[in-house]
Simulated scan of single mutants.
Amino acid sequence: MKTLKTIFAILLVALSTISCSSDDGKDGVDGAAGATGATGATGTANVIYSAWLTAPTAVAETIDGTSGMSTSINAPELSEDILAKGTILVYMSFGAGTYTLPYTSFAGATANTISAISTLKKIKLFRFVHSGAGTVNLPTTLSWRYILIPGGVAAATAKTAKPDYAKMSYEEVCARFNIQP
């Protein structure tokens, strides 16, 4: 029985190969072009990104009862519409790395976080110490970049929801929007 199955399998493969030969039929003819489709939903063609920027010297500030150091970078394209419906990504570069904000580290031998607070045409960079004791500076040697993704059509289902860009690496975001890192 096993031999019969093997012979049948070989015969099936041979027939398939012969019947699929490109020499036993005439070439097909391309059909007429179809109708033009409907215009698609708004895409990401209008993504805005900055060059790498330096920020002014940070100053002490208290935000929502939390003391820290802050500075701001200009983002002239940051509109009310983007604030309301878009996505704002901010990155910090130092040493050999690029980091997404918020960024938590142990600089100054204490846990601290650098976050970005977006407002019309500006992005405030704020660093606070988790323990609330003291501050850690925001050196002017750090570089900053923002990527603004205008809002589009609201997603109807989870299948069409926009990606969570904050969970993507800087390199993945740059690749997705064809941005030179």
Rank of each mutant, 00 (worst) to 15 (best):
G40N: 07
A41E: 14
T42C: 10
G43K: 06
T44S: 15
A45E: 11
N46K: 10
N46C: 05
V47H: 01
Y49A: 02
Y49E: 01
A51Q: 15
W52G: 12
L53H: 08
A55Y: 11
P56Y: 02
P56C: 12
T57M: 13
V59N: 03
V59P: 03
V59W: 07
A60T: 15
A60R: 15
D64W: 01
G65D: 12
G65P: 13
S67H: 12
S67R: 09
G68E: 04
M69F: 07
M69S: 09
T71V: 03
T71D: 12
I73R: 12
N74E: 08
N74C: 04
A75V: 09
A75E: 00
P76W: 05
E77T: 08
L78T: 00
S79W: 00
S79T: 15
S79R: 00
E80Y: 06
I82V: 13
L83G: 00
K85R: 14
T87D: 15
I88D: 00
V90D: 03
V90E: 06
M92N: 11
F94E: 03
F94C: 07
F94S: 10
G95F: 04
T98C: 03
T98F: 04
Y99K: 14
T100A: 10
L101F: 13
P102K: 09
T104Q: 15
F106G: 09
A107I: 07
A107E: 11
T110L: 07
T113N: 04
A116S: 09
A116C: 11
A116D: 10
S118I: 00
S118L: 02
S118Q: 09
L120P: 00
K121Q: 14
K121V: 01
